[in-house]
Simulated assay, not measured.
Amino acid sequence: MASAWWLVLLAACAAAIVSAGLIKIIYPYLLKHALAKPNPRSSHLTPTPQGAGIAVIAATLAAAGVALAGSSNLPAVLFGATVFIAVVGFADDIRPIPVLPRLLLQAAAVGAIVLASPCDVSLIPFIPVWIERGLLVLAGLWFVNLVNFMDGLDWMTTAEVVPVTAALIVLGLSGEFSPSAAVVAAALCGAMIGFAPFNRPVASIFLGDVGSLPIGLLLGWCLLQLALHQHPVAALLLPLYYLADATVTLLRRMMRREPFWVAHRSHFYQRATDNGFSVTHVVSEVFVLNIVLTVLAAASIRAGSFALEAALLALGAAAVALVIAHFSRQPKASSSSV
C-alpha cells in the first residue's frame, strides 16, 4: 500500500511540474498562433491564447506512462486514443471541422476504448454485450463533448477534474478501483493542478479542444473502470454536475427547436455569470458541490444495499438541482464578473 501511495504521488507531482513547465515553453507560440477571439458564446473579453491542453495531455500521458512502464496494466489503447482525439481537437482549434466528421473521429477514439474493455465484464448482464458496447460508445461520445461544452469558464474544468480524480485516486488505493486507472487519474489530477495557475480568473491561457476533448476521454475511461468494478452509482455521482448541466441544457435547446449543435451561452454556469455571479463564485460553488458528490460516491460504495445507493444518488441529484436553480437566479447583491 505504501508503494502504491508513492507511485500515485510521484505521478501527480511529475505531471504538475511537466504541465506547468510545458505551458511556459509553448505560451509564446500559442500567443502568436492560437488566439481565441471573443465571440457571443465567450466568457472572456480579450483575445486569449488557447492550447494549454497540449501541455496537460502530454504531462498526463508521460507521467502515467513512466509510472506504469513495464506493467501489463499499461492502457496502451487509451493512450493511443487520447493522442488521436487530441490531434482532432488541435485541428479543430486551428480550423473548425464540420460537425459530422468531427463526431465520427471522436467516435472512433471512444469506440477503440470500449472495444478494448474486457468482454467478460458487463454493466448490464441481462442485455447482449454488443448492445451494451454500442450504448457505451454513445455515452462516451456524449461525455467527451459535454466536458468540452462545460469548459467555458476560467477554472471550471479544474474545479471539476481535480475533485473527481482525487476521489478516484483514494478509491484506487482503497482497492475499490483499478490501480493502473488510479495512476492515470493521479497524472491527470497533477497536470490540471499544474495548469490551474495559468487559468485562474482572469485566465492567461485556455485548454482549447486539444485539452478538453482528451480530458473528457481520460476521465470517461476512469469512470468506466469504476463502473466496471461494480460501482455504477459512484461513477454517476462523481461527474453528476457536468452531466446534469450539459444534458438538461441540450434537452432544453432541442425542445425549443434551437440548433443545439451551434455554440451558445445557455449552460447554467454561463447563465450564472450573466445573472451577475462572479466567475470565482461560480467555480467555487461547483468545486464545493463536487466535494459533496465525492463524499456521496464514497458512501455509495460502502452502502451495501441498492435502496441506500438509490437514496444517495437521489441526494446527489438534489444537491445538483439546488446549485443549478441557484445559478438560474440573480444574486441579491450582484457582483461583477471577474
Results as ranks from 00 to 15, higher is better:
residue 2 A to I: 13
residue 5 W to Q: 11
residue 6 W to C: 13
residue 8 V to G: 12
residue 15 A to R: 08
residue 21 G to W: 14
residue 21 G to S: 15
residue 21 G to N: 13
residue 25 I to C: 12
residue 26 I to S: 06
residue 27 Y to T: 12
residue 27 Y to K: 14
residue 31 L to N: 13
residue 31 L to F: 07
residue 32 K to I: 12
residue 32 K to H: 15
residue 36 A to V: 07
residue 37 K to G: 11
residue 47 P to C: 08
residue 47 P to K: 06
residue 50 Q to S: 11
residue 50 Q to K: 15
residue 55 A to K: 01
residue 58 A to Q: 04
residue 61 L to F: 04
residue 63 A to V: 09
residue 64 A to N: 07
residue 64 A to S: 15
residue 67 A to D: 09
residue 68 L to T: 02
residue 68 L to Y: 06
residue 70 G to D: 11
residue 73 N to Q: 15
residue 74 L to T: 13
residue 85 I to M: 02
residue 93 D to W: 00
residue 94 I to C: 05
residue 97 I to E: 00
residue 109 A to S: 03
residue 112 A to K: 11
residue 113 I to T: 07
residue 115 L to E: 07
residue 116 A to F: 06
residue 117 S to I: 06
residue 118 P to L: 03
residue 124 I to C: 10
residue 127 I to K: 08
residue 128 P to Q: 02
residue 140 G to S: 07
residue 140 G to P: 07
residue 141 L to T: 09
residue 144 V to T: 09
residue 144 V to I: 14
residue 146 L to V: 12
residue 150 M to L: 08
residue 152 G to A: 03
residue 152 G to T: 01
residue 167 A to E: 01
residue 167 A to G: 05
residue 169 I to L: 05
residue 173 L to A: 10
residue 177 F to L: 11
residue 178 S to N: 15
residue 178 S to Q: 14
residue 182 A to G: 12
residue 183 V to D: 00
residue 184 V to S: 02
residue 184 V to R: 02
residue 186 A to K: 04
residue 187 A to E: 11
residue 189 C to V: 11
residue 190 G to Q: 02
residue 202 V to W: 02
residue 205 I to K: 02
residue 209 D to P: 03
residue 214 P to I: 02
residue 225 Q to E: 15
residue 225 Q to L: 10
residue 225 Q to P: 11
residue 230 Q to A: 15
residue 231 H to S: 13
residue 234 A to R: 01
residue 235 A to C: 11
residue 237 L to V: 07
residue 238 L to I: 06
residue 240 L to C: 05
residue 242 Y to W: 01
residue 244 A to W: 12
residue 251 L to A: 15
residue 253 R to E: 05
residue 255 M to S: 12
residue 260 F to I: 10
residue 264 H to W: 03
residue 265 R to N: 09
residue 266 S to A: 06
residue 268 F to S: 14
residue 269 Y to D: 05
residue 274 D to Y: 09
residue 278 S to L: 02
residue 279 V to N: 01
residue 279 V to E: 00
residue 283 V to W: 00
residue 288 V to E: 02
residue 290 N to C: 05
residue 291 I to L: 15
residue 296 L to Q: 04
residue 297 A to M: 04
residue 297 A to C: 08
residue 300 S to H: 08
residue 303 A to K: 02
residue 304 G to L: 08
residue 304 G to W: 04
residue 308 L to M: 14
residue 308 L to A: 10
residue 323 V to K: 01
residue 325 A to R: 12
residue 326 H to C: 08
residue 329 R to L: 06
residue 338 V to H: 14
